[in-house]
Design a protein around this nucleic acid. Structure first.
Lengths: 338, 338
DNA sequence: ACAATTATTTCAAACGTTTGAAATGCCGCG
DNA sequence: CGCGGCATTTCAAACGTTTGAAATAATTGT
């Protein structure tokens, strides 16, 4: 059953006693080819399960029909969900998608970028690692004319590039506003790694909501952490250190961080624990299993972010959008009350 | 800064006023090429950031250097984690990985398989959808000499193929044994979709553990569900319907299912809820945030499953293992007490 | 019947790389 | 001076496809 001679145009041509180009054109439905010939060729192709060799086509067309995605990891459902959006449109257009995880390490990001460059991907979608300050490894792509769309993570301000980002300011603003609406006066903000630009934006959303509602800003109600549990505990201890300004509500950078915070407060039987109202970014599916779920979540619509990224990328590939005419697309968040 | 003439061997050859083959051989360090020439070529290649065109090489070598993975979804951390293992070894060997999700739909699986076939992947790793009974779309690969490794999900018994599977019997057995050790007599088994062969194996592990410890098997203590929450509730209602045989412990097919079950029991304030001891397959990272976590989890070691799958696949690609000499690799589970 | 059209097929080059075979240049030695 | 032998380079074909130009076959009109 295993066939050793590969089924190529040449193979079909020999079988049919016609030239390779006739076969090629028949399969591609050229108008100059006789209908009867087309029928014969197409039948033969079907019978022998002919599939055109992509490498050959890619070589000819100087394309790879591959789109690269570089992102920190797939355990964060934000990224996993964002891929949904990308995949759907990419595969519908006949592109394959190669995903590379960096685990937020710059070295791995560079390695992945170089490998994708060598694979001559037709476009790149990237959520940069939290340590990416230099973009040489990514600028290579644009130098070769390969479009790059930055998504989910905002690169440094002065970099000219295409971006698709969540409206993290708005999400943070609405969460804070929602808590204010529920009569909280002491609302804490637990930020994420400062290297991730969103940390800033979310903080801004937070203070702007406070300002717009005449709630005084208290510096002691703001603390920063990263994805490390120990650091989150330290941050929480700081937030709750001033009895004068004990928070009754909390906006957190990311839900897993919030969960760590809540778990800690519960474990030390903190008096505020029971009445605290918290909101985090993410809207994790797992929330439904928590016995005291956060009052609400900020849904970042990752599928929409991914979808916008791939659509923009495809437009750039098809040159419907000028490569140097940098776009910035913002996807709104949505507050989901639990 | 954007270069329009691509940097190819020909380009370098013209710059250096030598033939294309000399350039090629110099870059590939042929011994017949003069050392000085090599140096000149390599310098020039570096200066112009020459990267060999993969499509051309693939065409020449009749390879794609791509490995396909087809799996149900990426939201299940089992699969996400299994990819870790695969990616690591694949990229170290210079292979790119294309992941396709089927959402457990046969139609999508077929579509993905056909697309990967067209892309002429060098090998395929697949966790079949729960509806896959016919394997024609996958046998195509082997007919073309492309190795396929089935992993994570066990295809129908009489299919001759390479498999890498978790030792789901052993995991189920140990979980049940563990509960017996904790003096439970009424241990329920909540199975998953019957179409997934693991459902059987896990059930077998369960009854074998019962038998080996002289615990009578009670048919009413077994129920089946799928990933749908409503069905899980129905199953739980069935399990708890006989007051004579009310379970005090539970082994569940998968943790999300277990979580749904626990949530339901809590919501109806079931008297057994507080003292029930449960174990599910998965060892989900979020367990730590549950206020009453399951007593233990069955860790399926997905990274190891993925690692074994890719290693076997690479051996098949390199023909270190005969394509028709079908392998079966079993990866043990580990009981993790919380 | 034969040129003029039109329909259909084939030729040949190109995409970028690899590689065995052939060619070239160079050296020393008889 | 010429030739064997070596080092080095180049030739040419191949991988499988596409495509404009050229060639051939079929049809029409006169």
């Amino acid at each position: 059953m295993i066939r050793n001679t590969p089924v190529t145009l040449k193979f079909l041509a020999e079988k049919l006693k016609m030239s390779v180009s006739t076969v090629s054109k028949a399969l591609n439905d050229y108008p100059t080819i006789n209908e009867y010939t087309k029928k014969r060729v197409q039948e033969m192709a079907r019978d022998f399960h002919f599939t055109p060799n992509k490498s050959a086509i890619n070589l000819k067309e100087r394309k790879s029909r591959i789109i690269g995605i570089i992102l920190p990891n797939l355990l964060d459902h934000f990224f996993t969900r964002s891929i949904y959006g990308v995949e759907q449109f990419a595969t519908a257009r006949g592109y394959n998608v190669i995903i590379r995880q960096t685990h937020d390490e710059l070295a791995k990001e560079i390695q992945a970028a170089n490998m994708l460059l060598k694979s001559r991907v037709d476009g790149l979608i990237i959520a940069i690692s939290k340590n990416t300050k230099d973009f040489a490894h990514l600028e290579q792509f644009e130098n070769m004319g390969t479009p790059v769309v930055y998504y989910a993570r905002n690169p440094s301000f002065n970099l000219n590039c295409h971006k698709v980002l969540g409206n993290t300011f708005q999400g943070s603003y609405e969460a804070t506003k929602f808590l204010i609406g529920r009569k909280h006066q002491k609302i804490a903000y637990l930020g994420g790694p400062k290297m991730i630009s969103f940390s800033h934006d979310r903080f801004n959303g937070y203070i702007n909501a406070l300002k717009d509602h005449q709630i005084p800003f208290v510096a002691g109600l703001v603390a920063y952490t990263d994805f490390d549990k120990e650091n989150t505990i330290l941050a929480i201890q700081k937030l709750f250190s001033d009895p004068e300004n004990r928070p009754t509500a909390l906006v957190a950078f990311k839900e897993p961080i919030l969960f760590d915070a809540i778990k800690y407060l519960r474990s030390i039987h903190h008096p505020s624990f029971a009445e605290m109202e918290c909101i985090g970014f993410g809207n994790n599916a797992f929330i439904t299993y928590l016995d005291v779920p956060p009052v609400a979540s900020i849904e970042e619509n990752p599928e929409a972010v991914g979808e916008n990224a791939i659509k923009l990328l495809l437009q750039l590939i098809d040159q419907e959008v000028e490569l140097l005419h940098y776009q910035k697309i913002i996807v709104d968040c949505k507050l989901v009350v639990h």
